[in-house]
Amino acid sequence: MPKINFDPRAKFLVFIVACVFCMNVSEPLPAVAFGTFVWVLLVLSGKPRSGTIMYLTFMACTVWAFLIITFTSTVWTMPLMALFVYGRIYIPMIMSFVFVFQTTKISEFMAAFEKIHAPSAVIIPFAIFFRFMPTVQEEWKGISQAMAFRGIGLKFSSIFFHPIQTAEYILVPLLSSCVGVMDELVAASLARGLDSDKKRTCFLEVSMKLQDYFIMMIALGFLMLK
């Protein structure tokens, strides 16, 4: 299936709407409608696999939360219900987060927001944030391997019985290597001419198309619904 490339601005609006909408909606049906909307967007922009996994998890949470609330409400089911409700609220937000940050090229993102005259002091930190996430992911993979070699691999028991020790094992190398990578990254970007005082150009065509206005309308529609 051909990928549809939505405009970063439209994606960002969807993300903001997701944050506002999901925090405020308490009925399951509108939540399902919104979740489905973001799922469709993810599938269209080339994330069918991870999108569907998240969507199914979200649906399961919503259904379970509904069932528990309707049929039982004892002290014992409360924590379980809370867990499912959290899933219902946060998963669509995570999905729209993925929609913004994993289907957009950095170059595209910067160009789109320069077009609406967003200041570079806002755009560049965001762009760096884009780049930071996969870095953390990559470092995390390496560190968890290193932990396994040392016999301090992540296990339920270690998280449960020595939470602080475990957090330290993860955070110390994670922070030190992420800081190192980001430091070098900034140096490299500066040396290659990234500068907040200048407008950049973009090698991709960035413009709002019909499809972008369409998804923005739907997103705003959800806000109205609320």
């Binding site: 090229k105 950095i106 170059s107 990254l185 490299a188 990234l194 150009t201 973009c202 090698f203 065509e205």
Partner: peptide, 25 residues
């Protein structure tokens, strides 16, 4: 090589320097 890329895909990376020089598309 791990820390000198600003972009996350190769095309954008090739273009990165040129974009900073404000060359036309």
């Amino acid at each position: 090589p791990k820390s000198q890329f600003f972009n996350m895909e190769t095309d954008g990376e090739l273009a990165f320097g040129c974009e900073n020089l404000q060359l036309p598309k």
